[in-house]
C-alpha cells in the first residue's frame, strides 16, 4: 500500500475507533413522493453500528433494506433524521466531500456486481483509486494485491463478460477493499450466486472483517448467512423490528 494512502486510511480508522461508532442513524425517515402518492420507505430508524462490527440487515422485499444501506453509504439522503459517519454529520457535507468520504471510507458490493463491462478486471478493481492522487503504478500494485486476496490474480486481463458470476462478485469484493475502506456495505452480495459461491464470498467478508477490523453491513435474505454475522437488524415495512 502506498504510504500516503495508508496514512489516510489509518487516520480514518483511528477516528472511527476513537468515537467507537462507525455509523449512527438517528430518527431517519425516507419518504418517496410523487404527484399523487407518498411512499414511506423508512420510518424512525435509529441504528448505531460500532467500528469493526459485522451486521446483517434482514427483511422481506420492500421492507427498506436497500434504502437503508444506500443512506448508510451516502448514495441516498434521508428525508428526515441524522446520519453520522464516525463523528461527521453527513448532512453538513457538500457533494464533493460526500464523494471523498465514499472514496476513502466506504466500499460497496452490489447484488448484480455492477462491474464496468468496458474495463478489464484490473481496471475495474482500480476504479476507487482513480479518484485519489495515486500514481498509475501504485494503483496497479494495490489492485494486484486486492485481486490476489480474492484469488483472481490470474484473471486480471479478463473482461467481466468472460467471468462466472462468482468470479465477478470476487472482483467486486476486490474493488470494494482495494482502497482499504473502514466500512464495507454489501447489498445481497450472494443473491445472484449458488450456495457454494455464496459461502466463498461470505468467507471473504468475514476474513476481511476479522483481519482488517473493518465494519461490514450486509443486506441479505439468507437466514443462514445472517446468522454468521454478529448482529441481525430486522426491518418490516420500513420500520425496525426488535
Amino acid at each position: 500500500m502506498n504510504d500516503s494512502t495508508s496514512q489516510v486510511a489509518t487516520a480514518q480508522a483511528d477516528q472511527l475507533a476513537a468515537t467507537g461508532t462507525a455509523l449512527d442513524l438517528i430518527g431517519v425517515n425516507k419518504i418517496y413522493q410523487t404527484d399523487r402518492i407518498e411512499t414511506i420507505a423508512l420510518s424512525d430508524i435509529n441504528v448505531s453500528i460500532a467500528a469493526g462490527e459485522f451486521v446483517s440487515i434482514m427483511g422481506p422485499s420492500g421492507s427498506g433494506k436497500s434504502t437503508l444501506l444506500n443512506i448508510l453509504g451516502l448514495l441516498d439522503a434521508p428525508s428526515e433524521g441524522q446520519v453520522m459517519i464516525g463523528d461527521r454529520d453527513v448532512a453538513k457535507l457538500g457533494e464533493r466531500e460526500c464523494a471523498r468520504l465514499r472514496n476513502r471510507t466506504i466500499g460497496f458490493i452490489f447484488q448484480t456486481f455492477q462491474l464496468i463491462a468496458d474495463l478489464d478486471v484490473l481496471d475495474n478493481v482500480q476504479l476507487p483509486l482513480l479518484y485519489r492522487k495515486i500514481s498509475p503504478r501504485q494503483r496497479r500494485e494495490m489492485a494486484e494485491i486486492a485481486l490476489d486476496r480474492v484469488g483472481l490474480d490470474s484473471r486480471r486481463h479478463h473482461f467481466p463478460g468472460q467471468l462466472s458470476g462468482g468470479q465477478q462478485q470476487r472482483v467486486a469484493v476486490a474493488r470494494a477493499i482495494v482502497g482499504t475502506p473502514d466500512i464495507l456495505l454489501a447489498d445481497e452480495p450472494t443473491g445472484n450466486l449458488d450456495s457454494r459461491m455464496g459461502d466463498e464470498i461470505m468467507d471473504l467478508l468475514e476474513e476481511y472483517n476479522r483481519e482488517a477490523g473493518i465494519t461490514v453491513v450486509m443486506v441479505t435474505h439468507d437466514q443462514r448467512l445472517a446468522e454468521r454475522t454478529q448482529r441481525i437488524l430486522r426491518l418490516f415495512d420500513g420500520r425496525q423490528v426488535h
Partner: peptide, 16 residues
C-alpha cells in the same frame, strides 16, 4: 447510467 452510479459510489464527483 449504471457506470455513472458505480463511479459515484466509489468516489467520483460530478466534476470527475
Amino acid at each position: 447510467n449504471t457506470e455513472i452510479g458505480v463511479r459515484k459510489a466509489f468516489g467520483a464527483s460530478s466534476t470527475d
